[in-house]
């Protein structure tokens, strides 16, 4: 009978173990229908010498990537949520020029929305600026959905 290398065998055991942890750790309300696998984890999954699994450490879910003695953790949270767009806290909008951030703010204030313009971040490209608003009335996608109303 062909024997598996000890490392690979241990790796398979660990993978099962971590998969179980992941099943326990991920509550249904946290999981999107089709979560994206980060590039590092995807590359690892296609590499027989690398192991990728979801683990929870301190209540936070991570992709754990093990390659030899090198262990990395990539938080899952950015994929499951978006810190830039959180109802009641923060809205982020991409715009063509920085003056639009001020127009958006005036628009929001006229509607009685309790939001502050915090930052105009330059990111380049077709919509080079981000307008970042914070406040209790933050609602992701609000401006675009209500632009013509």
């Amino acid at each position: 009978m062909k024997r598996l290398p000890v490392g690979l065998f241990m790796g398979m055991l660990s993978a099962c173990y971590f998969a179980d942890i992941a099943r326990v750790a991920l509550q249904p309300s946290e999981v999107r229908a089709n979560p994206t696998i980060p590039a590092a984890a995807a590359a690892c999954l296609s590499n027989p010498n690398c192991m990728a699994a979801m683990v929870t450490i301190g209540g936070v879910v991570y992709w754990e990537i093990r390659e030899g003695f090198n262990i990395r953790h990539i938080p899952l949270a950015p994929m499951l949520g978006d810190p830039g767009n959180v109802a009641g806290r923060r809205e982020t909008h991409a715009v063509a020029n920085s003056a639009i951030c001020d127009e958006m703010l005036r628009n929001f204030q006229q509607r009685g929305r309790r939001l502050k313009l915090i930052e105009r971040r330059y990111v380049g490209g077709q919509l080079p600026y981000l307008c970042i608003f914070e406040g209790v009335d933050a609602q992701p996608g609000y401006y675009d959905d209500n632009r013509y109303k």
Partner: peptide
């Protein structure tokens, strides 16, 4: 610092660490 990615929404950006 955050990275910003376009979404299917015309002006909505997604932040990632």
């Amino acid at each position: 610092l955050m990275n910003y990615q376009r979404t299917s929404h015309p002006t909505l950006m997604q932040e990632t660490s």
